[in-house]
């Protein structure tokens, strides 16, 4: 929506060492019954984060945390950058997954690859996704295992991340960059091109009249 991100920012990173993290894990189905866009943060990775089963009526502050889950470690409780393995966000199209990640406080996710629908949902909500080679992710994993914490600086405009004096470039579509940085309302922006849509529709209607009732 209208949330923009800073051009340059830095943060502490946490490494979730799993591949193919699906959106059912990011936010389980029982929380999809909410008709709001907010409040999903406490239930991010719910089944991994808590030892019991929660639902929309649970008081999350009273639930027992899973001490083995990385986000529950004291060192990583205030991290805003998530580093993980390939194909993050696969599965269901639920945008609630992105709402949960941003509501929790993540600004950026770094991984070798992301699922297509998740990618689209992310930039619309000011969540920056950075694709980095598998080998580089392995290097980061080694570093974070040794040092416990690492700080990462992200330069969105120039498309670099800086990590322990290393500069790593990343790709970002023009239109996604614009939305992330400017945080503009996408519906309003597209409606500025309304003439194009009307012209197309006029011609298209002649080709497929049966699709217009």
């Amino acid at each position: 929506m209208n949330k923009s991100i800073s051009n340059i920012f830095s943060g502490e990173a946490v490494f979730l060492d799993k591949a193919n993290v699906d959106t059912d894990q990011i936010i389980p189905k029982q929380f999809l019954k909410s008709i709001k866009r907010t409040g999903f943060g406490p239930n991010l990775f719910d089944a991994w984060r808590y030892l019991d089963k929660g639902d929309l009526n649970s008081d999350n502050t009273k639930r027992k945390l899973n001490p083995d889950f990385i986000l529950n470690h004291d060192l990583y409780k205030s991290c805003n950058i998530l580093i993980t393995r390939e194909n993050f966000g696969c599965g269901s199209s639920r945008e609630h997954a992105v709402w949960a990640l941003t509501d929790y406080g993540f600004t950026t996710i770094i991984a070798p690859s992301f699922a297509d629908i998740f990618k689209n949902n992310s930039y619309k909500n000011g969540l920056l996704l950075i694709e980095v080679d598998k080998e580089k992710i392995d290097e980061i994993f080694t570093q974070i295992t040794e040092k416990k914490t690492i700080n990462i600086e992200v330069d969105v405009h120039n498309q670099f991340i800086y990590l322990e004096e290393k500069q790593i470039p990343f790709e970002l579509d023009d239109f996604k960059k614009k939305f992330l940085l400017d945080g503009i309302d996408e519906v309003g922006f597209t409606l500025q091109h309304q003439n194009k849509i009307e012209d197309f529709e006029k011609n298209y209607k002649k080709t497929v009249p049966w699709l217009f009732k």
């Binding site: 199209s93 609630h96 629908i117 689209n120 949902n121 996408e186 519906v187 597209t190 309304q194 849509i197």
Partner: peptide, 22 residues
């Protein structure tokens, strides 16, 4: 194609989906 909720709103409002060709 499956889409997210922001895209649902966008298609309702504009009849268009924003993407680049795959």
């Amino acid at each position: 194609m499956g889409i997210g909720t922001s895209e649902v709103e966008h298609v309702l409002a504009t009849q268009c989906l924003v993407m680049n060709k795959q």
